[in-house]
């Protein structure tokens, strides 16, 4: 269980660009929740994910994981129980390293890295089978440098790396936004497959309302650094895009037409 309690974060304090990104945000994620997160630009979606990942220190509030306070734990230590996929396909992999090396790095997440060899033969076989099972055409290119893969391939690989060692939480930050529609659909389907099979607790940010309704068991809508809507279970299954838009204007007090532009 992950709890965000009264989390506040303001960027660029004391400058003209001062922005309150998280405003007394509270959210509790139960185990095996698959939560989709929607909201307009600047609503604080990515900031919330990064606060959980520890990319920056929050100004106040606390983050509790399974009863343990991780508010001041540095990013690389939190990685032990987090899997992350970023919006930018460049961000999740090391371009100058081979596919298998990237996977081996991810497989050691949360472990002490010592002087034993970086990748074992047994691992190579295991990665080969894993890549093959995902049908990405990468299993025969394991010694290829990741830098020459396409954005979709890199994103799929990042997803595998995020889950190769089962994380307590999977954080997907608009991970299909930079891909063409066909590749995006494939990566999204792959994400759901992994999340369902591994029963991963997942937070997925998306700009696509339909995806937000179709995937996951719970939907959260953010606006101005707060959560304005939290629907789960049967109520979520019955949602339509039109209803969601209406709820968004209602909750945030924004004009509906301008929000359509941001959310559709």
């Amino acid at each position: 269980m992950l709890e965000l309690i009264n989390v506040n974060k303001t960027f660029n304090v004391g400058t003209a660009n001062e922005k309150k990104a998280l405003d007394n945000l509270s959210l509790t994620l139960n185990d095996e929740d698959f939560v989709t997160v929607i909201g307009g630009n600047g609503a604080g979606k990515s900031t919330m994910l990064n606060a959980i990942a520890g990319t920056f220190r929050i100004d106040s509030g606390s983050i509790i994981l399974d009863g343990m306070n991780i508010t001041s734990l540095p990013e690389h230590k939190r990685a032990a129980f987090l899997g992350r996929v970023f919006q930018d396909p460049q961000m999740g992999t090391a371009p100058s390293m081979m596919i298998e090396e990237n996977m081996a790095l991810a497989a050691r997440r949360g472990q002490r890295r010592g002087l034993s060899w970086g990748i074992s033969e047994a691992e190579r076989t295991q990665y080969y089978e894993l890549l093959k099972s995902f049908d990405l055409g990468l299993e025969d290119r394991m010694t290829t440098k990741v830098g020459i893969l396409s954005g979709g391939q890199r994103q799929a690989l990042t997803l595998l790396m995020a889950t190769i060692k089962k994380p307590k939480f999977l954080l997907l930050d608009e991970h299909t936004a930079a891909l063409d529609p066909k590749t995006a659909a494939k990566v999204l389907a792959l994400s759901e497959e992994i999340v369902t099979r591994e029963k991963l607790t997942t937070l997925m940010i998306t700009h696509n309302m339909k995806d937000a309704i179709r995937y996951g068991n719970r939907l959260v809508m953010m606006d101005e650094g707060r959560i304005v809507l939290d629907i789960s279970g049967e109520a979520k299954k019955k949602l339509t895009v039109a209803e969601l838009l209406a709820k968004f204007s209602e909750a945030s007090g924004h004009d509906e037409t301008s929000d359509k532009m941001l959310l559709s």
Partner: peptide, 21 residues
């Protein structure tokens, strides 16, 4: 080695390296 690979990852993409612990 594991350590050496993690140093290479640090130089190649420090964001990814931190995300991998």
């Amino acid at each position: 080695t594991e350590k050496g690979c993690s140093i290479r990852a640090t130089g190649a993409n420090s964001n990814m390296a931190r995300a991998q612990g």
